[in-house]
Simulated assay, not measured.
Amino acid sequence: MHAEAKRRAPVDLGIYEGKIGKHPPGFLRDHMLIAYDRERSVEGRRATYLVTWSKEAFYGRFLEHGTSKMAARPFLRPAYEARRREAAQVARSVIQEKVRELVNG
Protein backbone atom coordinates (compact mmCIF):
# COMPACT_ATOMS: atom_id res chain seq x y z
CA MET A 1 0.00 0.00 0.00
CA HIS A 2 2.77 2.41 0.94
CA ALA A 3 4.61 2.00 -2.37
CA GLU A 4 1.37 2.33 -4.33
CA ALA A 5 0.37 5.51 -2.45
CA LYS A 6 3.82 7.01 -3.08
CA ARG A 7 3.55 6.15 -6.75
CA ARG A 8 0.14 7.83 -7.01
CA ALA A 9 0.91 10.95 -4.94
CA PRO A 10 0.54 14.11 -7.04
CA VAL A 11 3.78 15.87 -7.91
CA ASP A 12 3.64 19.61 -8.57
CA LEU A 13 6.36 20.84 -10.86
CA GLY A 14 6.72 24.18 -9.08
CA ILE A 15 8.39 24.89 -5.75
CA TYR A 16 5.96 25.73 -2.97
CA GLU A 17 7.38 27.98 -0.26
CA GLY A 18 5.37 27.92 2.94
CA LYS A 19 5.96 28.80 6.57
CA ILE A 20 8.08 25.68 7.08
CA GLY A 21 10.28 26.34 4.06
CA LYS A 22 10.56 25.27 0.44
CA HIS A 23 8.80 22.18 -0.78
CA PRO A 24 10.43 20.93 -3.98
CA PRO A 25 8.61 18.77 -6.53
CA GLY A 26 7.84 15.34 -5.06
CA PHE A 27 7.90 16.57 -1.45
CA LEU A 28 4.60 14.86 -0.59
CA ARG A 29 5.67 11.62 -2.27
CA ASP A 30 8.98 11.69 -0.40
CA HIS A 31 7.23 12.30 2.93
CA MET A 32 4.78 9.41 2.81
CA LEU A 33 4.99 7.26 5.97
CA ILE A 34 3.84 3.98 7.42
CA ALA A 35 2.63 4.62 10.98
CA TYR A 36 1.63 2.13 13.69
CA ASP A 37 -1.93 2.80 14.89
CA ARG A 38 -2.03 2.18 18.66
CA GLU A 39 -5.76 2.90 18.93
CA ARG A 40 -6.81 0.23 16.43
CA SER A 41 -4.16 -2.34 17.36
CA VAL A 42 -4.62 -5.01 20.01
CA GLU A 43 -1.37 -6.14 21.58
CA GLY A 44 -0.63 -9.77 20.83
CA ARG A 45 -3.60 -10.05 18.47
CA ARG A 46 -3.62 -7.38 15.79
CA ALA A 47 -1.25 -4.70 14.57
CA THR A 48 -2.74 -1.93 12.47
CA TYR A 49 -0.70 0.40 10.33
CA LEU A 50 -1.64 3.54 8.42
CA VAL A 51 -0.22 4.99 5.24
CA THR A 52 -0.03 8.74 5.79
CA TRP A 53 2.25 11.76 5.35
CA SER A 54 4.59 13.64 7.66
CA LYS A 55 3.55 16.85 9.43
CA GLU A 56 5.60 18.85 6.95
CA ALA A 57 3.45 17.49 4.10
CA PHE A 58 0.16 18.36 5.85
CA TYR A 59 -1.33 19.53 2.56
CA GLY A 60 -1.73 15.88 1.49
CA ARG A 61 -5.16 15.96 3.16
CA PHE A 62 -6.20 18.87 0.96
CA LEU A 63 -5.12 17.02 -2.16
CA GLU A 64 -6.86 13.80 -1.08
CA HIS A 65 -10.16 15.39 -0.02
CA GLY A 66 -10.20 18.75 -1.79
CA THR A 67 -11.20 22.11 -0.33
CA SER A 68 -13.95 24.62 -0.97
CA LYS A 69 -11.71 26.15 -3.65
CA MET A 70 -9.96 23.08 -5.03
CA ALA A 71 -11.23 19.77 -6.37
CA ALA A 72 -9.96 16.60 -4.73
CA ARG A 73 -7.03 14.79 -6.33
CA PRO A 74 -7.34 11.48 -4.46
CA PHE A 75 -4.37 9.15 -4.37
CA LEU A 76 -4.67 7.22 -1.07
CA ARG A 77 -8.10 5.73 -1.78
CA PRO A 78 -7.15 4.66 -5.33
CA ALA A 79 -3.93 3.12 -3.95
CA TYR A 80 -5.97 1.18 -1.40
CA GLU A 81 -8.47 0.01 -4.02
CA ALA A 82 -5.64 -1.10 -6.32
CA ARG A 83 -3.85 -3.18 -3.65
CA ARG A 84 -6.53 -4.30 -1.18
CA ARG A 85 -6.93 -7.83 -2.57
CA GLU A 86 -3.19 -8.34 -2.65
CA ALA A 87 -2.89 -7.04 0.94
CA ALA A 88 -5.69 -9.34 2.10
CA GLN A 89 -3.95 -12.33 0.50
CA VAL A 90 -0.66 -11.44 2.22
CA ALA A 91 -2.48 -11.17 5.55
CA ARG A 92 -4.16 -14.56 5.00
CA SER A 93 -0.80 -16.13 4.19
CA VAL A 94 0.80 -14.76 7.34
CA ILE A 95 -2.12 -15.97 9.47
CA GLN A 96 -2.00 -19.44 7.90
CA GLU A 97 1.76 -19.65 8.50
CA LYS A 98 1.36 -18.67 12.16
CA VAL A 99 -1.42 -21.23 12.62
CA ARG A 100 0.84 -23.91 11.10
CA GLU A 101 3.63 -22.92 13.48
CA LEU A 102 1.30 -23.19 16.48
CA VAL A 103 -0.19 -26.52 15.37
CA ASN A 104 3.18 -28.11 14.59
CA GLY A 105 4.75 -26.77 17.77
Results as ranks from 00 to 15, higher is better:
residue 6 K to I: 07
residue 6 K to M: 15
residue 7 R to D: 14
residue 7 R to P: 02
residue 8 R to T: 07
residue 9 A to N: 09
residue 9 A to M: 12
residue 10 P to G: 08
residue 12 D to H: 15
residue 14 G to F: 11
residue 15 I to T: 15
residue 15 I to P: 03
residue 17 E to A: 11
residue 18 G to H: 10
residue 18 G to Q: 07
residue 18 G to E: 11
residue 19 K to L: 12
residue 22 K to N: 06
residue 23 H to T: 04
residue 23 H to I: 03
residue 24 P to M: 03
residue 26 G to C: 06
residue 31 H to F: 05
residue 31 H to R: 13
residue 32 M to A: 14
residue 33 L to C: 02
residue 34 I to M: 03
residue 35 A to W: 11
residue 35 A to T: 13
residue 36 Y to P: 03
residue 36 Y to S: 06
residue 36 Y to I: 02
residue 36 Y to H: 15
residue 38 R to M: 07
residue 39 E to D: 13
residue 40 R to A: 13
residue 42 V to M: 10
residue 45 R to W: 06
residue 47 A to M: 10
residue 48 T to Q: 08
residue 49 Y to D: 00
residue 49 Y to S: 05
residue 49 Y to A: 09
residue 51 V to T: 07
residue 51 V to S: 02
residue 51 V to I: 07
residue 53 W to G: 07
residue 53 W to M: 05
residue 55 K to I: 06
residue 56 E to R: 15
residue 58 F to E: 05
residue 60 G to K: 04
residue 61 R to M: 04
residue 63 L to F: 05
residue 66 G to Y: 05
residue 67 T to R: 13
residue 69 K to L: 10
residue 70 M to E: 12
residue 70 M to R: 15
residue 71 A to H: 08
residue 73 R to V: 04
residue 74 P to S: 07
residue 75 F to C: 06
residue 75 F to D: 01
residue 78 P to H: 01
residue 80 Y to D: 03
residue 80 Y to E: 13
residue 81 E to W: 04
residue 82 A to R: 12
residue 82 A to Y: 03
residue 84 R to T: 01
residue 84 R to I: 06
residue 86 E to S: 10
residue 87 A to W: 02
residue 88 A to G: 06
residue 92 R to M: 08
residue 92 R to D: 15
residue 92 R to I: 05
residue 93 S to K: 14
residue 94 V to D: 10
residue 94 V to C: 00
residue 95 I to Q: 11
residue 100 R to M: 02
residue 101 E to K: 15
residue 101 E to W: 04
residue 103 V to Y: 04
residue 103 V to Q: 13
residue 104 N to M: 11
residue 104 N to W: 11
residue 105 G to T: 01
